[in-house]
């Protein structure tokens, strides 16, 4: 029978693995559909981690709460940039959105862990 620690560790490992895989696919794969789906997964995870970090830091750690907010905003910004880039056909915006999403994920992850 799985204890709460087991569930915690499994959940943590799954989120970490999924984040890394999605982030790598976002940069290594040329297929636009796969890239887009990976970006949305990374942004969703970054947003989740930012929310978790904000909730944890809410009572007492203002700096961390602000960082969490920043990470969340970056995740949303990444999705917006990607949509605009796709509509206007600008590859640079697409690259910027991917970098933004990856940064949001890393910042949110480190913020939540610490």
């Amino acid at each position: 029978m799985l204890t709460s620690l087991d569930l915690l560790v499994i959940a943590f490992m799954a989120i970490t693995a999924l984040s890394l895989l999605a982030a790598l696919l976002m940069f290594l794969i040329r297929n636009k559909t796969v890239r887009r789906v990976s970006l949305y997964i990374v942004s969703a995870l970054a947003l989740y981690l930012a929310a978790m970090g904000f909730y944890i830091a809410l009572y007492g750690f203002v700096g961390q709460a602000l960082i969490a907010l920043l990470a969340g905003a970056a995740a949303i910004g990444a999705v917006v940039l990607d949509i605009i880039g796709a509509k206007k056909g600008l590859d640079r915006l697409s690259l910027a959105s991917r970098i933004c999403a990856a940064a949001a994920l890393v910042i949110g992850f480190i913020n939540a862990i610490s």
Partner: peptide, 24 residues
């Protein structure tokens, strides 16, 4: 258990990533 779980997940990520890249 942590080591085993970590190994299983790492192997899965390795296989998926390699398959994606090879498929490309």
């Amino acid at each position: 258990r942590i080591f085993s779980l970590g190994a299983i997940i790492s192997v899965l990520v390795f296989v998926m990533l390699f398959l994606f890249l090879l498929g490309q």
